[in-house]
Amino acid sequence: MKASDFMKKLEADPEYQEMKRRKELELEERKALLAADERSLVKELALAGFEIESVWDFVNNNNRYEFLRKFDGGYRSAYSILVKHLDVEHHPRIREGIIRALAEKDANETASEALLAAFYQEQDSNLKWVLANTLRTVLTRSQKAKHPEYKEIYNAKGQP
């Protein structure tokens, strides 16, 4: 069967169309939930001069695919706002974006202590790994020696 024939079959299948409609609705609801969750963060960052739609714009700012970049350049002055939001209750997806946005070598002075505290307090195994990954970038060699636990968590997920 050709792909075009299969697509026509799916277009005519009411069960598939209903499933597709439900999935699209769920996606729109999730996008609205996440946007509402990070609204205060995005507003604070805008007041600091960063015109972003989501914290994930910082994460994707070095993406090799230009069409994925909504923000380009450095954002060192945003680190303190991001660190502040580590202590704010956010949806896990937004929290992950905050943590990943802090995965910059020059964030050490501003973020290392807060990231370490978050690492030791984090209960969610995925976010704990994301913190370990970020600490791998942010911490200095001597800090890494003092906190080897991050490496155990990082390596436990089968990463190199």
Rank of each mutant, 00 (worst) to 15 (best):
E96G: 07
E152Q: 15
A12T: 02
R100S: 08
E66C: 07
W56R: 05
N126E: 15
P160W: 04
L27K: 10
E89W: 12
P160H: 10
E149A: 04
R64Q: 05
E38N: 00
L47W: 15
H91E: 14
S40R: 14
N61D: 06
E104I: 06
T110H: 04
K157H: 10
T137N: 01
V42Y: 12
E104W: 05
I52T: 00
F71P: 00
G97I: 01
K146V: 04
E28G: 04
K31G: 09
R76T: 12
E53P: 02
S40P: 07
A107S: 03
E66G: 12
G49F: 04
K20C: 14
F119K: 02
R22S: 05
A107Y: 02
S80V: 12
A36Q: 13
K144L: 06
I98V: 10
K144I: 11
R30Q: 06
E89V: 11
Y120A: 06
A32S: 06
E66H: 08
S77V: 06
L10V: 01
K144A: 12
Y16F: 15
Y65I: 08
G74K: 12
F58C: 03
S112L: 02
R76D: 12
K23Q: 15
H91D: 13
E29A: 13
E122A: 02
A107W: 01
I98R: 00
K9P: 06
R21Y: 13
A78N: 02
R30I: 12
T140A: 05
G74T: 08
N62Y: 11
S77L: 01
N155H: 05
Y79P: 09
L33K: 14
A101Y: 01
A145M: 09
Q121C: 08
K146H: 04
I153Y: 06
H90S: 03
Y120E: 15
K8D: 10
L34Y: 00
S77P: 03
L116A: 00
T140Q: 02
S54L: 05
L45W: 06
F71N: 00
R95H: 02
D124Q: 13
E38G: 03
K70N: 14
Q123E: 14
D37G: 03
K128Y: 08
L25K: 15
R64P: 09
M19W: 09
A156W: 08
W129C: 12
R95Q: 10
N61C: 08
S40N: 14
A12E: 04
A117S: 14
E44M: 05
E113Q: 10
R93N: 04
D106I: 07
E109R: 05
L86K: 05
Q159N: 08
I81N: 07
V138H: 01
V83H: 09
G158T: 04
A111D: 03
K31I: 10
E96K: 05
K20L: 15
R76N: 09
